[in-house]
Simulated scan of single mutants.
Amino acid sequence: MTEYLTSADGTKIAYERTGSGPSLILVDGAMCYRASGPARPLAKELAADFTVFTYDRRGRGESGPGSEISAERELEDVAAVAEEAGGTPFLYGISSGAVLAADAAARGIGVPKLALYEPPLIVDSEHREPLPADVLEQVTAMVSAGRNAETVSYFMKSVEVPGFAIVLMRLMPGWSKLKAVAPTLRYDFTFLRGLQQGVRPPADRWATVTMPTLVVDGGKSSAWMRTGVRAMADALPNATYRTLPGQNHLVKPKALAPMLREFFAG
């Protein structure tokens, strides 16, 4: 059942809770929301052991868009969900949502344990070309001009989706959903700024994330992704780095859930 809360700037945030047990918040990656992404299937896998909170990041699904593109607003949204979840929830994030979750934990919102799956850091140019320093400005210009389809294509290319696959995606019914949430990519590239340009993350960005943290990549993921994930683990003060065999960035909930269950329940 969909519930609603109000974030600090007055934006309506839609969320739902599933299961019973200690509270656990799932933070989606770029373009995803409750009705379109991995959060609901993962929540179903974990519901026997946790009260799982899934929510639509602002501008997606049933949440309001807000009036300002700012990483601060998204951090306030996570804090609002955390308060609704009792103030000391476990926190999990995937892809760009992993960076958002780590940044939220750094704010001291009361997270006792943190888990991250494949934060998309690009830390060297050996395995792939870094994104340009002005990627946020390019995305903002496309969105401002109403070129949402171009924005989606640009993002897909940035995560190395083959050109032929993007052409096929444009013919699928789900393409209209992707175009609808394309403006939210401005949020993702705002807090990913400086993390995809071929350098290691700043040493102090997550210095306060001292709670036990699980950082996971997939054994079948690209070399650049795994290198970036390891760099994220190295940048966190209390991280354990693990690899999930047979998985890639589109991790299967049934494969991931046992590792998360073991970590959060341990």
Rank of each mutant, 00 (worst) to 15 (best):
A104G: 02
A231G: 04
V229E: 01
D56F: 12
R200W: 00
G198Q: 12
R205D: 07
H249L: 10
A39T: 09
V139P: 07
E150M: 09
M169Y: 13
P112Y: 10
A149M: 02
A48L: 04
L195W: 02
M225V: 07
V78Q: 03
D103C: 11
L24C: 03
A71S: 15
K252C: 00
T6Y: 13
A79N: 09
G21V: 09
E16C: 08
D234L: 11
A85V: 03
A104R: 00
P212F: 12
G218K: 11
A102V: 03
A43H: 04
M169Q: 15
H249E: 14
T227A: 13
E45A: 15
Y4V: 01
F53G: 03
K252H: 08
Y187W: 13
A255D: 14
M142P: 02
T184P: 07
A115V: 10
V251M: 05
Y33N: 13
V167Y: 14
L250E: 10
T240R: 14
A115N: 02
A165W: 12
P183H: 06
T151G: 05
W224S: 10
D9H: 13
Y92D: 01
V229R: 02
E68P: 02
S153F: 05
A30Y: 11
F155D: 10
K44P: 01
V111G: 01
A8P: 01
A257T: 04
E3T: 12
A30P: 09
S176E: 13
K113C: 06
S95Q: 05
L178T: 00
G64K: 12
D188H: 13
F90S: 04
E68Q: 14
M232A: 10
A207T: 14
V161C: 08
G163D: 15
D9R: 13
D28N: 15
Y55T: 11
A223D: 14
M259N: 04
A104K: 00
L185R: 08
V216G: 04
R60F: 05
R128K: 14
R107L: 15
M169K: 14
V123W: 03
A182T: 10
F50K: 03
P120H: 07
R226I: 02
G87P: 03
F50A: 10
N148T: 07
R200G: 04
S158G: 12
K177I: 14
V143R: 11
V135Q: 12
V161Q: 12
T140H: 12
T184M: 10
N248Y: 13
A102F: 02
I122L: 04
L100M: 06
W175S: 04
D77H: 07
A223W: 09
G110C: 06
R17P: 03
A235G: 07
K220W: 03
M259W: 05
G194R: 08
D217T: 11
A235N: 13
G246V: 12
R40W: 10
R73Y: 02
S36P: 00
V199Y: 05
G66V: 00
A85I: 07
T243P: 03
G266F: 09
G86N: 11
I109A: 03
L91I: 04
K254Y: 03
I13M: 12
A43C: 09
